[in-house]
């Protein structure tokens, strides 16, 4: 066994291989960044969309829903929800949530959003829907 398999060689390969693949990952990430402006619709981001994203975050929507498939799997995908129900449908749904829930059923909490907040949320969700995400989800149900 002596000599044919040494720890120093294994260690050098570990360091070399790690640096190598990390650099490769950085190179791909760099290319991704040059391509993203064509896909992420950043030119359309308004203060209202930013406000909507903040509302999305500060109410932990991702704790039940998915957005582009990421999040929790307790409630429907929202990346395409504006396409599914329309702007007004989404707002009406959020507004109509009963405070004490629905007996025996899953229910979204009543967040008491103002109309301006609802507009911001919908603007954010519309923006997400406009991102070129390789045609995901497979259908309107998300």
């Amino acid at each position: 066994m002596s000599g044919a398999f040494t720890k120093s060689m294994a260690r050098n390969i570990f360091y070399g291989g790690t640096v190598f693949f990390f650099l490769l990952f950085l190179a791909l990430s760099f290319d991704t960044h040059s391509q993203l402006p064509k896909r992420d619709m950043r030119q359309n981001i308004t203060p209202q969309i930013a406000e909507g994203k903040k509302l999305w975050e500060t109410n932990d929507c991702v704790g039940c829903h998915t957005l582009m498939g990421e999040g929790a799997y307790f409630a429907p995908e929202l990346g395409n929800v504006v396409a599914r129900y329309g702007d007004e449908g989404v707002k009406a749904f959020i507004k109509a949530r009963p405070k004490e829930g629905i007996p025996g059923r899953r229910s979204m909490p009543q967040f008491n959003f103002t109309d301006a907040q609802l507009d911001a949320l919908v603007a954010f969700l519309k923006h997400v829907n406009s991102v070129n995400d390789a045609n995901w989800p497979p259908n309107i149900q998300g």
């Binding site: 039940c64 929790a72 307790f74």
Partner: peptide, 16 residues
Amino acid sequence: IGDFLFPHIPFNVARM
């Protein structure tokens, strides 16, 4: 049981 502990501990809070 969707309304278990609702609205005191909603799903997203329990999940966190």
